[in-house]
């Protein structure tokens, strides 16, 4: 078992967890959080794929992708939260 395999498991797990929550929950804030967890899971599998266990280095390009993803996600989260505040907590009533 290698390091990247552990993180592959964790990333896939986070992705699945987030997708399950998205499909079963109606609370707006919780859904936004699930989307954040989903993004984290994706970043994790991405970085784990770029990780070279032999040299202990990670490919810089997926690192840049993950960084970009983080910034994009905080922007969209802020927009989603602003919208959620305007319509009140539940998006369906």
């Amino acid at each position: 078992m290698t390091t990247d395999l552990v993180y592959h498991v964790a990333g896939a797990g986070l992705t699945g967890l987030a997708l399950w929550r998205l499909a079963t929950c109606r609370d707006a804030l919780r859904r936004i959080m699930a989307l954040n967890v989903l993004a984290i899971g994706i970043a994790m599998v991405l970085l784990a794929s770029g990780f070279d266990a032999a040299t202990g280095r990670t490919d810089p390009v997926p690192q840049a992708f993950a960084l970009t993803g983080i910034v994009v996600l905080v922007s969209v989260t802020a927009a989603l939260l602003a919208l959620a505040e305007r319509i009140g907590g539940r998006s369906n009533d």
């Binding site: 990247d4 959080m33 990780f51 990670t58 690192q63 993950a66 983080i70």
Partner: peptide
């Protein structure tokens, strides 16, 4: 950090946990 991506770790700590948490 464990995945040898300190740049991402810095950003995650500041933005992912910090700003996003504050927003929530």
């Amino acid at each position: 950090v464990r995945l040898a991506a300190p740049d991402v770790a810095l950003a995650e700590a500041a933005i992912g946990a910090g700003v996003t948490g504050a927003l929530f």
